[in-house]
């Protein structure tokens, strides 16, 4: 035990030296003078984690400091977000935020935070909702899909990630617009939902463009919920083109504890914009099915307000909200 501890101590001490213990003050001039802690309110290995991992090396390259990712999972993100405002307000702590989670969860029950409590400042991408079918599916187009649903009300089963989520709300919105009745089967996360699709447990999936990218060759997308076609999928139409006004998906952004200085926030926001603009980064993210956007601090409030309207309406008709 003692030798063991000595070993641990030695390595710990070495690591301490290596990391350095900067005691910097939070002033924008010398910000950042140490690594930034980036808390993901979900577990490791999820989509939020993976997108943060994508950003990590570019953050270091463009910002000069390490981005240290840690996790605070629980309650579908609620555990992390409810504690965000009690964390350090010097800009060295930031947390990932996800839509529609931060809009829907606080409206269900008291989860320890309200949507407005979150000082979000940059929404950097979204994974657009998409209807995904297996490569050999009988549905070749969205029209086939709708025709089947009309002929067999309720019998069209779709897997999706969770309830009250982007997938679920998109399903509700689309069913209403198309005048169909489909059956949504909620799974724990996109991985399990894809598994059900590939295993033909369900006829189709409410998934994301990232599913189309990751499982290319095994799945096809019938339509994507974007303003314009995704650069990686020029052949897949948007819902808009086909006459259904849906632009939606799982949006990801960053928030800081309330009270973090505005100039520090601005610096972080600029860095995120720069990462998003980096050609290498763009190529990687788009190949993986992400759609990059830049909702910066000044546009954040309007964006949330606009999304809230649509989400709350869909959630109410889905029975998720009373």
């Amino acid at each position: 035990m003692k030798t063991n501890l000595t070993k641990l101590l030695t390595s710990a001490a070495a690591a301490t030296l290596a990391l350095g213990l900067g005691m910097a003050t939070a002033q924008a001039d010398d910000f950042p003078s140490k690594s930034i802690s980036y808390i993901i309110p979900f577990g490791p290995g999820g989509e939020s984690d993976i997108s943060a991992r994508h950003q990590q090396p570019f953050f270091k390259k463009l910002f000069g400091q390490d981005l240290v990712i840690s996790y605070k999972p629980g309650g579908g993100g609620a555990v992390g977000w409810s504690q965000l405002n009690s964390m350090g307000k010097d800009g060295y702590t930031m947390m990932g935020i996800n839509l529609p989670h931060i809009i829907i969860k606080p409206r269900q029950k008291d989860v320890g935070f309200k949507t407005d409590d979150i000082d979000g400042f940059h929404i950097f991408h979204y994974t657009p909702d998409a209807i995904v079918v297996t490569e050999d599916s009988e549905f070749k187009t969205l029209k086939d899909f709708i025709d089947f649903a009309k002929a067999n009300p309720g019998k069209l089963t779709l897997s999706g990630s969770g309830k009250g989520t982007a997938n679920h709300l998109a399903k509700v919105t689309f069913d209403k617009l198309a005048g169909i009745k489909s059956t949504y089967v909620a799974f724990k996360g996109t991985g399990a939902s894809v598994q059900a699709l590939l295993g033909k447990q369900v006829k189709a999936q409410w998934g994301y463009t990232s599913v189309g990218a990751k499982h290319a060759g095994k799945v096809r997308m019938l339509a994507v919920a974007m303003e314009e076609r995704h650069p990686s999928f020029p052949d897949v139409p948007t819902f808009k083109e086909l006459g259904f006004d849906i632009v939606s998906g799982a949006y990801r952004g960053i928030a800081v504890p309330k009270g973090t200085p505005a100039d520090v926030k601005q610096k972080l926001s600029d860095t995120i914009s720069k990462i998003n603009a980096d050609a290498d980064f763009r190529k990687k993210m788009e190949a993986d099915g992400f759609a990059l956007i830049d909702v910066t601090a000044d546009k954040y409030a309007d964006f949330i307000a606009e999304k809230t309207k649509g989400y709350v309406e869909a959630a109410k008709s889905a029975g998720v909200l009373k």
Binding site: G75, G76, K109, F187
Partner: peptide, 8 residues
Amino acid sequence: VAEVSADI
């Protein structure tokens, strides 16, 4: 928070 359904 239920992992799959939407209730707390």
